[in-house]
Amino acid sequence: MKKVLITGMAGFIGHHLAKLLLKNNYEVVGMDNINDYYDVNLKLARLTDLGFKTSEIEYNKLLSVGLNSFIKLDLTDLDNLKKLFKAQSFDYVVNLAAQAGVRYSLKNPHSYVDSNITGFLNILECCRAFPVEHLIFASSSSVYGLSEEIPFHEDHCTDHPLAMYAASKKANEMMAHSYANLYNIPSTGLRFFTVYGPWGRPDMALHIFTKAIVADKEFEVFNNGDMSRDFTYVGDIVESIKRLLPLAPKENNLKFNPKKPVPSKSSKPYQIFNIGNNSPVALMDFIKAIEKALGKKGKVVFKPMQPGDVQSTYANVESLFNYINFKPQTKLEDGVKNFVKKYLELNS
């Protein structure tokens, strides 16, 4: 039986990944600092859904329910993080813990250095001290920045980030490669494209729009609605991660040409994949799907483009499809319905 550490397990994707891995007979250890970037009650509800008594949660105390364990711990706490790695002997690490959000990074840039750079460095140091078979870490589609070369391909230039969040994710990719080189840590970075679904974060568009429509309140849509996103259902995301776990990159990749290097491949045990739906949806069509699921119209207020935002995201995901033999299965309408059902249940 393989043991997996999921950082950010009280988060959106981490919660879904833990449930899937437990169903597939993995032993799971999750950690999260349960910060107040958004409603802590939602994070605690996710942990309750995973079987934990949240009243028993204390900092640096491991709770266990069958094959599932949880510890409240901050990535910046290197001493206790090393103790956790030493005690647990992880086979795989999936690093999903991060300070998220493009717009939040405009106001609080230092939090991105603490969580996304210092925190990730500590994960790398622990994987060096206590070797794992595979480190999978969350990057982001935001690394493509100023690029308008659509669809985004892993080998496109990512040197022009638009906000600190994107810059921190680009830094993660470079840091992971350096540790793959120096310490032979097999690492896979995943550039997520607009993940959505049940238990989603309150700062995400789907949650914001749904909340406003239910309350019969106005909500803002930027760039006057002329935007599109490669919306990817969370169930398809975690299925992809599950399939990736045993498929660690190898050293001396013959597809890597050092005279013509590309960002996604290396002669070291390192690789980068886009992880998306490969089917961008106009934002106004996304809103229509929410309205249909709720059975009522929304009150849209159009606004100009926000700093740090991009007009469109569109993932070329052929490399990942071929590598794991899986394509996203969930239709947008079904995914939105699933979110709305859970939203109404949690907010009734």
Rank of each mutant, 00 (worst) to 15 (best):
K3W: 14
V4T: 15
M9H: 08
G11A: 01
F12P: 05
F12E: 10
L17K: 03
L21A: 01
N24P: 13
Y26F: 13
G30R: 04
G30P: 06
I34N: 03
N35L: 06
N41W: 07
L42S: 10
K43N: 07
L44H: 07
A45W: 11
R46W: 04
R46K: 08
T48S: 14
T48Y: 13
Y59S: 10
Y59P: 08
L63P: 09
S64W: 11
N68M: 13
F70Q: 07
F70A: 06
I71T: 11
I71A: 12
L75E: 11
L78K: 08
D79P: 08
L81Y: 09
K82W: 07
F85T: 04
Q88F: 06
V94I: 01
V94S: 06
N95S: 14
N95V: 01
N95I: 05
A97T: 08
L106H: 11
N108E: 11
P109N: 05
S111V: 06
V113G: 04
T118R: 09
F120L: 02
L121T: 12
N122T: 08
C126T: 14
R128P: 02
H134N: 14
I136C: 08
S140V: 04
Y144C: 00
E148F: 07
E154M: 06
D155E: 12
C157V: 15
T158P: 08
D159A: 14
L162W: 04
M164W: 15
Y165A: 03
K169H: 08
S178T: 14
Y179W: 08
L182K: 15
Y183G: 10
P186V: 08
L190M: 04
R191A: 06
R191S: 12
F192I: 11
K211V: 09
A215F: 04
D216S: 13
F219H: 01
V221H: 07
D226F: 06
D230L: 00
T232K: 02
Y233N: 04
I237R: 00
I237F: 02
E239P: 01
E239L: 03
I241E: 01
L244M: 01
L245N: 02
E251I: 03
E251V: 14
N253P: 03
P258Q: 07
P258D: 05
S266K: 12
S266H: 02
Q271I: 15
F273L: 05
F273A: 02
N277W: 09
S279I: 15
S279Y: 15
V281E: 03
I287M: 14
I290G: 09
V301G: 10
V301A: 09
Q306P: 03
P307N: 05
D309L: 02
D309I: 01
S312D: 09
A315V: 07
N316Q: 12
L320T: 06
L320F: 03
F321E: 14
F321L: 12
Y323C: 05
K327G: 11
K327V: 12
P328T: 05
Q329D: 08
V336T: 03
V336S: 05
F339R: 00
V340K: 06
K342V: 06
L344D: 11
E345R: 12
L346G: 09
S348L: 10
